[in-house]
Amino acid sequence: MLTKRIIPCLDVKGGRTVKGINFINLRDAGDPVELAAAYAQQGADELVFLDISASEEERKTMHKWVRDVARQINIPYTVGGGINSVADVAALLEAGADKVSINTAAVERPALIEELANAFGSQCIVVAIDARKIHNTWTVHTHGGKRTTDKKLFTWAKEVQERGAGEILFTSMDHDGTQQGFAIDALQKLNMLLHIPVIASGGAGSPGHFLDVFVLGRADAALAASVFHFGTIKIPELKHFLHQKNIPVRL
């Protein structure tokens, strides 16, 4: 049976992982490779790296750490952040990334999704969608959530799929950082609407939230950052909990 995926998300800036990382026995918690290896060891099914470098200078490190991760890590990983073109993606895939994630660039120029799917295959193109409810309408945001767009979540998700995305990474900005659970209603609707996998993001705070996102939200995968980084939730324990609740997971 196809298992539900558990995906830690790592922010990288200037080649270093940021945010509080609370792993035991790590020589260097700021090293993407070392952190990725620790997560792979714990049983993470995939990893997502988001490069939040602000300057061109910082971003120059991207290909190096992407390549270093590929050398060391034996599970799939996605790289996102500042990707704008076929050439950007070609370089990252060549460095060893399995998938890339695009967000703002897709909203600004939706044809980019087709260009990437045609050039590299849908399976490696993830479109990330950040959205929050405004006047009861799920509204897409760009630039790391800073800018509101006129796109609506469900029509945009459907368009993204039709244009050839292989997967959607949906983050509810209303739930992100709250640790109060995922956006179950929106996920339910997305998963009814789409025939490509959906990764749920935003709101993970307890193992029960993961159970809900898979059973009620019907998500294919769940992504979280701080609960894993701070060790609030440990991946092996989370997977055993889900397994006991009859959710198919890789143990």
């Binding site: 849908s122 997967e167 490509i196």
Partner: peptide, 15 residues
Amino acid sequence: EADSQHKVPHMGWNQ
């Protein structure tokens, strides 16, 4: 062929 329970591609870990 995708159906209501199965998405395509088959993506992820399977036994």
